[in-house]
Nucleic acid binder design. Structure first.
Lengths: 317, 317
DNA sequence: GTGAAAGCGCTAACAA
DNA sequence: TTGTTAGCGCTTTCAC
């Protein structure tokens, strides 16, 4: 319709600097007039670049993963990429089949949650020969790239922190998820090194929520050793623990200190008594996006990025 | 590699009932052995069905939209569809360009938030000739299909409820978003009909959060008329209002009744004193998915689905 | 700076 | 039940 070859239109859209201004203006005018929408499926097939990035997370509902996905989507969107959402559920039960179906869309990169993947999945990812960013954890042997933090160190740090504050009867209200298990191990090891060994644990199904947190604390309080400090594997559980403590008339942190994990926004303001461990969730999405974009342009990339964590102590008001 | 024509492999994958068991088994064995992954980009181009559904929401971080998207993704995933995530921000500032870029991926359907779209967007959607589901609101004239509820009715219902309880000095802590504005209108109209007109309003930027809620209540309390009941445009704001009330030593609902909107999971347990309006967020995603799937199979579909709402009253404990 | 030819990896339509 | 042919709408490559 513009009286030029298809390839010229393609250039006008994708590499306008290769087209004379006059031709460009004319093509753009025709595009605007006709409402032409390029077909990126066809473009992707021809160029072998889908401009799609797959993001596989357990869940985005009320969760720490939503913000990371949001940042990833925003940053990649700026560069013309769209995010294909894959929800694997807890405990990553569907990651394998999800990965298979998602790879058939030929994404240009994959964002993964965690570092534990089946041999088939690893194999498939390697075979796809695309940038892969694992997140939320640390390992010296990522599939490709990694943005996360050490759950073991985090567990250790919290144990040291609580024991340093004088607490000795420690309890855990804990979801049965894999990364949480590593935090627990770090916590128990560091506690043992300080002579605290009799740690009470209430294990609950993932993902945690307020109700489960209440149940968890109830279990601990009715157990053999009443804890004076409870560390929770998520802020959602911590809220439940706090609620149960309030319902039972316990003062926080006087009778019972409570620590959460994740620093969900509602926690800090709502419960000034509730300390937690802050993770820069937005950084995970952003850094993952940057890593992918760098790789698309063959720029050098840091393979492993440790974003760390921060213990946030809140005063009772 | 399997010694059959490409189309036979295609059938073995997509319509196995058309292939003899022996051929099928053989093809499947070869697929498993070689790790063949079909290219759905090519498939989509050839069949004109991308098996992609675009979901455009303002945000998924800490938000009521995340769960709807999650349900949509789950249900569509069962049917072999993947969700392309589009985040338009508040106040849908990027919806137009987002829609353009998303449509170039040739989605088989589109999930939209709200019923207000630019003429260009409506035009583009109509031109795409695919199922479109608008959500979170109601209108007699949807672009195509609709799953939502009436914000005006909801506002009216809350006004009637509060006034019925005897409250007369009403306040609103309100985000400046479009659907909230409709709820406000309904609220004020119904209040006026009952003789309550002097409603104090604190307007805050969207999306609301706890901090903004605190600020909002502070503004109202320092204003000319101290409210005895505050309705908030979201539960996030309501939490802030509650926090501020507690910080000022007000009893809830004794000195100040607070109503939220959205029924986020943390609200009911955390604040037994906090009533709210429950929206079935999961139903929105699920019904939208069902509507799309029905249309894909040319089954009859209810064009407009009102999922209603429910005032959830909580006792103080 | 622009174009012609070929082909990306599938599936629709029709044929055997 | 299986195969042949053609073509989806782009981009690559190479030529002009």
């Amino acid at each position: 319709m513009a009286g030029v070859a298809p390839i010229t239109v393609s250039r006008a859209i994708n590499r306008p600097e290769l087209v004379t201004k006059d031709t460009l203006d004319h093509i753009r005018e025709v595009i605007a007039r006709t409402g032409y929408v390029p077909n990126l499926l066809a473009g992707g097939l021809a160029s072998k670049r889908s401009r799609l990035v797959a993001a596989i997370v357990p869940t985005i509902g009320n969760s720490i993963f939503a913000e990371a996905v949001e940042c990833l989507t925003d940053r990649l969107g700026e560069a013309g990429y769209k995010v294909l959402l894959g929800l694997s559920g807890y405990p990553s039960s569907r990651e394998d089949e999800l990965l298979a179906t998602v790879l058939s869309r030929r994404p240009d990169a994959v964002f993964l949650t965690g570092i534990t993947h089946s041999p088939e999945s690893r194999q498939r990812l390697l075979a796809a020969k695309i940038p892969v960013v694992e997140t939320w954890d640390l390992t010296p042997t990522p599939i490709d790239m990694l943005v996360g933090f050490s759950h073991e160190k985090l567990g250790r740090a919290v144990a040291a922190y609580l024991i340093g504050k004088g607490y000795r009867r420690l309890g855990l209200v804990w979801a049965s998820d894999e990364r949480a298990a590593v935090r627990r191990r770090g916590f128990e090891e560091a506690a043992a090194e300080r002579g605290v060994t009799d740690i009470q644990v209430a294990i609950l199904p993932a993902p945690g929520n307020l109700k489960l947190g209440r149940d968890g604390l109830a279990k601990l309080l009715d157990g053999p050793q009443r804890p004076d400090a409870v560390f929770c594997s998520s802020d959602a559980l911590a809220q439940g623990v706090l609620t149960e403590a309030q319902a039972r008339g316990l003062s926080v942190p006087g009778d019972l200190a409570i620590m959460g994990f994740g620093d969900l926004e509602f926690a800090p303001y709502t419960y000034p008594a509730l300390s937690t461990v802050r993770i820069d969730r937005r950084a995970i999405g952003l850094l993952a996006a940057e890593a992918m974009l760098a790789r698309f342009e063959d720029k050098p990339v840091e393979k492993i990025v440790d974003i760390g964590f921060e213990i946030v102590e809140r005063e009772s008001t």
